[in-house]
Amino acid sequence: MALMANVNRADRMPMSPTPQPAQSPRAELRDLRISFPLPDMSTLEVISGISMTVAEGEFVAVVGPSGSGKSTILRALCGLLEPSGGSVLVDGKPVSGPPPGVGFMFQKDALLPWRTVAGNIRIGAELGGVPGDRREERVASLIKLLRLDGFENAWPRQLSGGMRQRVSLGRLLAYQPSLMLMDEPFGALDYQTKIAMGKELLSVWEAERRAIIFVTHDIEEAVALADRVLVFSARPARIIADYKVMLPRPRHMRSMRGDPAFTRLTEAIWSDLALPE
């Protein structure tokens, strides 16, 4: 079994920006700074000079304390939030509005209650410009991939939480994004359903190989899913560690919990999050 890199604290800090990969990055933040005005005319600094890259097909997880700006960087990447300083790039181009080829998946599934399972997934194909004669083929293939066979004509109210999230993931994939931004998509699910959804996501990612930025509070989930795990400090956020996960794929989330390398890495990240300001 391949082992992860040494995780001694001396090797982690001080932290320098992640080197740019050989190929052009799918997403890039350069010295990103974000502040929000407060009613007393002061400002709240949320992001403090973050630089990071995400390569084509790379799965990057982001962990950190609540309120540390993890979700904020996703909003900046999809053009919903203008930075106070620094640069946000997708496919090498500065982001000044919603960029093409970027899909967002939230913790809440936000399915349209008046559309069936197939209809909700079809929305992604419509927004993504999939030609009309290919939409049904795309929808059908995603229904099979996400194990929703037999529920094509079901309404969202008839589905479990995990099934609703699979439909939401199907809608995102139908859009055919080159970059998937996922903001705690499984955070509201029970443990068993979360494990099942993680398995589904890995299956889809291994088949589609889209670049993913996955925000989560669950350190074990981050290590089990990702190629890299970025650790954010408390607000104002900076990157305090960037781990390359060397665990072999395919990964089975339940069995990984007893793996010594998995345990060492999760404990190292817990240690990072316990560091004083």
Rank of each mutant, 00 (worst) to 15 (best):
M1P: 12
A2S: 13
L3Q: 14
N6T: 15
R9M: 12
D11M: 10
D11H: 10
M13N: 04
M13E: 11
P14K: 13
P17C: 14
T18N: 01
T18S: 03
P19W: 08
P19R: 03
Q20A: 11
Q20M: 06
P21I: 08
P25H: 12
P25R: 09
R26F: 09
F36P: 00
P39I: 02
M41Y: 14
S48Y: 04
S48E: 06
S51P: 02
M52Y: 09
A55F: 13
E56W: 06
E58A: 08
F59R: 03
V60P: 05
V62D: 03
V62Y: 10
G64W: 02
P65A: 08
P65R: 01
S66W: 07
S66Q: 02
S66D: 03
S68E: 00
K70V: 05
G79E: 04
P83C: 09
S84C: 08
V88E: 10
V88R: 06
L89P: 07
G92K: 07
K93I: 11
S96N: 13
G97Q: 15
P99Q: 00
G101W: 06
V102E: 04
G103V: 08
F104W: 10
M105R: 00
L111V: 04
R115T: 06
A118F: 02
G119I: 08
N120E: 06
I121E: 00
I123V: 14
A125F: 15
A125I: 13
E126Y: 07
E126G: 02
E126C: 03
L127G: 03
V130Y: 15
R134M: 12
A140K: 05
L142E: 02
K144E: 15
D149A: 07
F151C: 02
E152W: 10
R157L: 08
Q158T: 14
G162I: 09
M163E: 00
R164H: 09
Q165T: 04
Q165Y: 05
R166C: 05
V167I: 12
S168H: 03
R171D: 06
R171Q: 08
L173E: 01
A174Y: 03
Y175G: 01
P177M: 05
S178K: 12
M180I: 10
M180V: 10
M182R: 01
D183I: 05
L189P: 01
D190G: 09
Q192D: 13
K194N: 02
I195R: 03
A196M: 07
A196H: 04
A196Y: 01
G198L: 01
E200P: 11
L201K: 00
L202M: 15
A207Y: 06
A207K: 14
I212K: 03
V215W: 12
H217G: 11
E221T: 06
E221M: 06
A222W: 10
A224G: 10
L225P: 08
D227T: 07
D227H: 14
V229E: 00
V231F: 04
F232Q: 02
R235Q: 14
I240K: 08
A241C: 06
D242T: 01
V245E: 00
R249E: 10
R251I: 06
H252Q: 11
H252N: 13
M253D: 09
R254P: 05
R257Y: 15
R257V: 12
P260H: 12
A261G: 13
F262L: 04
R264W: 05
L265C: 08
A268I: 14
I269G: 05
D272F: 02
A274L: 14
P276D: 07
